[in-house]
Write a protein that binds this DNA or RNA. Structure first.
Lengths: 174, 174
DNA sequence: GCTAGCATGTAAACGGTTACATGATTAG
DNA sequence: CTAATCATGTAACCGTTTACATGCTAGC
């Protein structure tokens, strides 16, 4: 998810790490701050893999900026990851949202629709958070108001997500 | 989140690891399978910390079961974690849902309401996924249908979540 | 004079993923 | 006979968190 965000934002243009970190933080909804201890090693890995280059510019009133630029293989790597996402990027809503943030970079509408379709297929499978004898328990079956709440809220989210997915797939295929 | 889930489910009664794993998988919505390589070391840590004990029972048609039982300090640890959750358990919806799953174990309604209140306060802060000059961008400001979708969906989820939180807090305080 | 923001990084510890390893029972 | 389910675990690798480390500028 971190690597995908880096590739995604740098696809739109060169940035330095400080700026990049601010965008990644926003993207996650400030749910968990991006730590430098994760970001810089990730950039090192991407540089080593040939996905980006760094060149130094004088920073104004701070340490010199190291501007990060995606290479052609870096750009290709993003497109590859968008077109063929890992399972967790389909199943986990947070990860899927990161994917959504950059899916527009994929030019092919059919490929875009395919990604949404995968998410829709996953969401169409009935699921609960609690099971008895392998069968999902429904909200009404709980005395606990918090467990009832979980299921009620998840159902509402699932409904609007699925509606949007169906509509957007239809538009892409039109 | 894994440790919390273990404490939460064992609070309801002794289980063996295989059973526990099934419940944890369900709780996460099967978004990411619980790996044994995460579960067993986590159980080791909890045992070492004195939060649980293991005793062996003959398994029927499989390896012998090792039944996991929370100790008193384990039970106390769960209640402490529920009453005073880490930041990420408030900000991240997935983590918060795990908290919700076990919040009923907390007997004090005021403490329960306080946890929900923290979540509501976080959610009441205006947020986007994208910012320009430090100000959140709104759905209408995007040409990209996927970014528009992200914001539309997040807004819908936020609205129903916040409504539920307000109602539930009111009920708890009544 | 101090705090917030800009700007870069490193190192240890921790925890999770992936792959490996074993073996019995039950249902098709 | 074969696959799925029950049942336990280990080890290498990888990435994230947390804490540490530095230093300049602008605004109060």
């Amino acid at each position: 998810m971190l690597t995908l965000s880096i590739l995604g934002f740098l696809y739109e243009g060169p940035l330095h790490a400080y700026d990049l970190r601010a965008r990644i933080s926003g993207l996650s909804g400030h749910v968990r701050p991006v730590s430098d201890g994760a970001l810089y090693p990730a950039l090192d890995r991407l540089e080593k893999a040939g996905h980006l280059t760094r060149h130094t510019e004088p920073g104004h009133g701070a340490a010199p900026r190291r501007v990060l630029t995606l290479t052609d293989t870096g750009r290709a790597e993003l497109l590859r990851r968008l077109a063929d996402p890992a399972d967790v990027e389909i199943t986990d809503r947070n990860s899927f949202f990161v994917l959504l943030a950059f899916l527009g970079h994929l030019q092919d509408r059919t490929a875009q629709a395919q990604v949404l379709r995968r998410r829709l297929d996953f969401m169409d499978k009935p699921a609960s958070f609690f099971y008895a004898d392998g069968k999902p328990l429904r909200a009404e079956q709980f005395d606990d108001p918090f467990r009832r709440g979980m299921l009620t809220l998840a159902r509402a989210t699932s409904k609007s997500d699925r509606t949007w997915l169906r509509e957007t797939i239809a538009e892409l295929e039109a």
